[in-house]
């Protein structure tokens, strides 16, 4: 550090940033608190909720019994993992080719792929809905896997491309000089270097697919509804059951919150398409 900072300035910064950070985080904190309360306690005054009421796991069990949380949870898992890995399967060869064997039009192709992501979903809502209806894909997990994969494919390709691009070409040459075959080159040199980038890509796309709330709400009813739609069913009048809504919400966001904390850096790369580094 070039200049020394007085402890007082540091304490002041910490206090201000800490307070604002706490306020940003407060709604999440609050539903964590409410989820461990009974319905009667959850609607009392905030201070009473905090200091003058017991703690219970009751709401979590009720949510599971009443509305089968695990069914929706497994739908979410299948849809987000399925769309991500299917997308990866299609994206890896494309990103690989564009990064290592760039052609004259590679840049244009990449730009065009990104531009498909700029299409507002609502612009194609009607035809997708009708196609899904006609082919019996409404309210099926496979249909959602496909739609979400298509939604995120440009981001997956883009992220993989930027990661692959960072692998220095000299290493490949060195491997070739040492007599590595193409198969060995890919297996022992490229793959280990590509895995961290692929892991970040997977992480970010699971998050995006998990939280996607346009197609999941419009294309599902009961069977294939993931957690986004499950929570939406609390909009009224069940939303008035604060403890249950909180418990359901916490169970819906907890896995992604944890994953999100690990993927802050990748988020910048993935969502700005490399325009900010």
């Amino acid at each position: 550090m070039a200049r020394s900072v007085s402890n007082r300035a540091k304490a002041l910064n910490t206090a201000v940033a800490g307070t604002l950070g706490f306020l940003m985080f407060f709604p999440i904190l609050w539903i964590i608190v409410l989820s461990f309360k009974t319905e009667e306690d959850a609607i009392r005054a905030p201070l009473e909720v905090l200091f003058n009421s017991g703690w219970t796991l009751e709401s979590f069990f009720t949510v599971q019994e009443r509305s089968d949380y695990f069914k929706h949870f497994s739908n979410s898992v299948i849809i987000s993992l399925g769309s991500t890995f299917l997308g990866l399967l299609i994206a890896v060869p494309a990103a690989w080719a564009m990064a290592f064997v760039p052609a004259k039009h590679t840049k244009n192709v990449l730009m065009w792929m990104l531009s498909t992501k700029m299409l507002p979903p609502v612009g194609v809502l009607v035809p997708i809905y009708l196609i899904f209806r006609d082919y019996g894909l409404l309210d099926t997990r496979i249909g959602l896997v496909f739609v979400l994969m298509m939604m995120n494919l440009p981001i997956i390709i883009w992220m993989l491309y930027t990661y692959f691009k960072e692998i220095p070409g000299e290493i490949l040459e060195a491997a070739r000089m040492d007599g590595a075959s193409l198969r060995e080159e890919i297996l022992y040199v490229l793959t280990p270097m590509a895995i961290p980038g692929m892991a970040s890509t997977v992480l970010l796309n699971i998050i995006l697919a998990w939280n996607e709330a346009f197609w999941t709400l419009n294309l599902t009813a009961a069977k294939a509804a993931p957690l986004t739609a499950f929570i939406a069913s609390y909009s009224s009048p069940e939303g008035l059951f604060y403890a249950k809504l909180s418990a359901a919400s916490i169970m819906a966001i907890a896995p992604i919150l944890i994953m999100g904390w690990f993927s802050q850096k990748q988020l910048v790369r993935g969502l700005t398409f490399g325009a900010v580094k």
């Binding site: 940003m24 985080f25 709604p27 999440i28 609050w30 539903i31 409410l34 998050i207 998990w210 939280n211 709330a213 709400l217 957690l227 986004t228 739609a229 929570i231 939406a232 609390y234 909009s235 939303g239 008035l240 604060y242 809504l245 909180s246 919400s249 819906a252 966001i253 992604i256 919150l257 994953m259 999100g260 904390w261 802050q264 988020l267």
Partner: peptide
């Protein structure tokens, strides 16, 4: 940063009700 990872339906309902 945490609020960014909360799914839209959860954020909206939590703010609306709580």
């Amino acid at each position: 940063i945490a609020p960014f990872f909360v799914m839209p339906t959860v954020s909206a309902l939590v703010w609306k009700n709580m």
